[in-house]
């Protein structure tokens, strides 16, 4: 039976991924989050922002008992939105800790502990912001671009060393608690993708595909962002940042 590790499995996309893994593939799911979630998977409580090496050794011990993993999805992420200088520094530092330091440290640990099974998959969840830019969430944009570049850099070495397939998911806005909290006022929830659909795309993706951009709208935005990066960021500034700024 396939062994799966999902971070940030308590809500949103992570929860959808966990549910679908258990339902459809009868996988043995290890779900990581700040607190245990719905019964079903095996819960491991861990703070991705942890700096203390004892906490990480504790996690290594927990995971050794559950691995090696055939599928690892590094999905946990937080955001801090608003004009950069008006958002407290602590919030920015928490974003880079959870979204960038944590996943890189966890990946390093999975390699060191040989917890990635040969022929397995290692999936990083970044964001559509990697293509469009994200004014109004500068530290979040930073963390997700960093994660995407990390995934790119790991792709070849990991394929060579254990035929491990590295993949990058860049979802656009999803209908999750995260989006509801950070979308500008008046944004239409029905235009956001359901996390279940994104989860399905991730789980179904062929190993030959590195980049996964779920949904037509996101695919178009990514293509435009590639062709006209600066224009796309200016548009994001107008449609998103100006409205975030107006938020009380």
């Amino acid at each position: 039976m396939a062994r799966v590790l999902i971070t940030g499995a308590g809500s949103g996309l992570g929860a959808a991924l966990a549910t679908q893994c258990m339902g459809q593939t009868a996988a043995e799911v290890t779900a990581l989050d700040l607190a245990p979630g719905k019964p079903g998977p095996h819960w491991v409580v861990h703070d991705m922002a942890a700096r203390d090496s004892c906490i990480w050794s504790g996690l290594a011990q927990d995971l050794r008992a559950r691995g090696p993993f055939d599928l690892v999805i590094l999905n946990a992420g937080i955001n801090a939105t608003g004009p950069f200088e008006n958002v407290a520094l602590d919030a920015h530092q928490a974003v880079t800790a959870v979204n960038l330091h944590g996943p890189i440290r966890l990946t390093h640990m999975l390699l060191a502990e040989e917890l990635l099974a040969p022929h397995g998959r290692l999936v990083f969840v970044a964001s559509l912001s990697c293509f469009t830019g994200y004014p109004g969430a500068a530290s979040y944009a930073a963390s997700k671009d960093g994660l995407a570049s990390f995934a790119r850099a790991l792709r070849r070495p990991l394929r060579k060393s254990g035929n491990i397939c590295v993949q990058l998911v860049c979802p656009g806005p999803m209908d999750t608690p995260h989006a509801a909290q950070h979308a500008p006022k008046g944004a239409k929830a029905d235009r956001r993708l359901a996390p279940g659909i994104v989860a399905q795309k991730v789980l179904d993706a062929s190993r030959s595909k590195f980049l996964i951009v779920p949904g037509f709208g996101a695919t178009m935005a990514a293509a435009l962002g590639r062709l006209f990066p600066q224009t796309m960021t200016r548009i994001m500034g107008r449609v998103l940042f100006q409205r975030l700024k107006a938020r009380p």
Partner: peptide
């Protein structure tokens, strides 16, 4: 910053700086 196989952590840090600057350039 585009993702160099020989230096994954450095690549990540510089890509992050790029994403940060890209967003901030627009904000400011």
């Amino acid at each position: 910053h585009k993702g160099a196989a020989g230096m994954p952590v450095y690549s990540a840090s510089k890509a992050a700086l790029d994403g940060f600057g890209r967003a901030l350039a627009q904000e400011w």
